[in-house]
Design a protein around this nucleic acid. Structure first.
Lengths: 127, 127
DNA sequence: CTCGTTGATGCAAGCAACTTGCGTTAACGG
DNA sequence: CCGTTAACGCAAGTTGCTTGCATCAACGAG
């Protein structure tokens, strides 16, 4: 992968605010700095990053596909349905273990996707 | 919801083979019995069933949105990436507990979505 | 430093799945 | 049996994703 203004900008955007972004949202943010950038360019750039393992794709129920900077530990998300705040969860928080699945089902797990939705502590106490 | 040939057929299809179906797949199956059925009719029918709580929507990473007959116990899926076979998993299989999440994060969990992908026992032993 | 190769980009068209508007059909309650 | 109104079929519209192609610019060899 070549080192261009765009790749640097995208990396900067994700590092500055490590939240999952859709292609559209990323495109918007990029255009604030480089207005001529085409959607298809973002599409292919993210695709390259993903295949290089530097960006991870996640799927949110209603909110569609989103992308996240991958240089972080493996984790999942819980989203507050009131205020939108997200929190990271790791497998231990979830009690998740591939070994457990393997012994119960015989499947060798390659990939797992876990997304939670709920009400955060703040929004609960607001009542 | 009115009781039409279509609603009866859709119910029958899901009961006969309780696998998650995409709108397109369901449309195909319906057309085998009622060839004149429009895609948009399936779309609206599933929407009505979903809002009535009789069909559940699930999201599969690559395979897009699918729908499942809801009169079953709460469960998740693991899909074999080689042969496509799916297996149901319940929260206990996964070690999942809303109580655990609540005590670790303060979030009150409303909804969780867990989808796994791996290689089933058969496909593993084929090598 | 310069130049040629080739990956990266912008534009526009294409695609697939989903969604909506509208006129017609058929459930079903009276 | 009839009128109301949910369901339906058709066709057009929308959205987000994907591709083809001509042009541009990284960057490594020379």
């Amino acid at each position: 992968m070549r080192n261009t203004r765009l790749t640097r900008l995208v990396e900067e955007i994700f590092r500055a605010d490590p939240k999952p972004l859709s292609l559209g949202e990323l495109h918007e943010r990029v255009q604030k700095q480089l207005p001529a950038t085409a959607y298809s360019t973002i599409f292919r750039l993210v695709d390259r990053f993903e295949r290089a393992g530097r960006i991870t794709r996640i799927d949110w129920r209603e909110r569609g596909s989103r992308f996240e900077w991958a240089e972080r530990h493996h984790h999942h998300h819980i989203v507050c349905s009131d205020c939108g705040q997200t929190l990271d969860l790791d497998d231990e928080d979830l009690g998740f273990s591939e070994r457990r699945i393997q012994s119960r089902t015989g499947f060798r797990v390659k990939h797992h996707s876990i997304e939670l939705e709920g009400t955060c502590a703040d929004c609960q106490s607001e009542r």
